[in-house]
């Protein structure tokens, strides 16, 4: 089992609108892959398809060697949705506990996991508060903590750092690197280009296809620019020119 995520030729059509038109993606152990692309490109859709939460019109996904959708594999995936899905009436700790239990973590193991996850996202002092007293950034951090609660082999994070201050973002990336050291894999969608720079590999999705893929360094060389942001812009421009020429 070499690939953690193996998505081939994914095609997704929402009521006549082709969102993904033959996208493939691979993720190997110990790798952080960034999914970038303009808003509405289909990043979230791809992530949901990988999770088995959305159907495909064509193509297949396997996670950890198991064809998705599959319920049992869910235990090994830590998922953070683009929008926070938390129980407002419960405290941060109760949310963590609830999702931990659903993931099959129990007893003292659960207590330890809660303490660790809260520590990573700097929420230890706020765990007792109810979610309706949380700020947007705190909710984001709690969602991330929930994604890590069962110490999963794969983390799939959909725009995890929106609304999180730079200092804490550093801390979160430190944690992601430490997970990578342990041989775990991370798939992350992002808008923030300096985060994209930190990924091992990037996939730029635009107008339904993988426009460019490779390590940030290789991409910059390929497009002869200095930043990932410029790669993003130049690749997009070239694509537009191509389609208007035709």
């Amino acid at each position: 089992m070499d690939t953690v995520i193996h998505a081939t030729n994914i095609k997704k059509i929402y009521s006549n609108k082709t969102v993904l038109n033959g996208v493939s993606l691979d993720l190997i152990p110990g790798e952080i892959v960034g999914l970038i692309g303009p808003s509405g490109a289909g990043k979230t859709t791809l992530v949901k398809i990988i999770m088995g939460m959305e159907s495909t019109n064509e193509g297949e996904v396997a996670v950890l060697g198991t064809k998705m959708p599959n319920r049992a594999v869910m235990t090994k995936i830590g998922y953070m949705a683009q929008s926070d899905a938390l129980y407002d009436n419960l405290s941060g700790k109760e949310n963590l506990k609830f999702f931990g239990q659903l993931m099959g973590v129990t007893g003292s193991k659960l207590d330890k996991a809660i303490a660790h996850a809260a520590d990573v996202v700097n929420l230890t002092d706020d765990l007792g508060k109810r979610i309706n007293n949380y700020s947007g950034g705190m909710k984001r951090r709690l969602s991330l903590a929930i994604a890590m609660i069962q110490d999963p082999d794969v983390l799939i994070l959909d725009e995890p750092t929106v609304g999180i201050d730079p200092e804490l973002r550093q801390q979160i990336w430190a944690e992601l690197y430490s997970l990578k050291e342990q041989g775990k894999s991370v798939l992350i969608t992002t808008h923030v280009m300096d985060e994209a720079e930190r990924c091992d590999r990037l996939a730029l999705i635009r107008e339904g296809i993988t426009l460019a893929a490779g390590s940030p360094k290789a991409l910059k060389q390929e497009y002869q620019v200095n930043t990932v942001e410029d790669v993003f812009l130049k690749a997009g421009r070239l694509q537009d020119e191509n389609s208007s020429n035709r």
Partner: peptide
Amino acid sequence: TGTLSRLLATP
């Protein structure tokens, strides 16, 4: 609120 689909992202 999305918690339902979040629930279904667990086993």
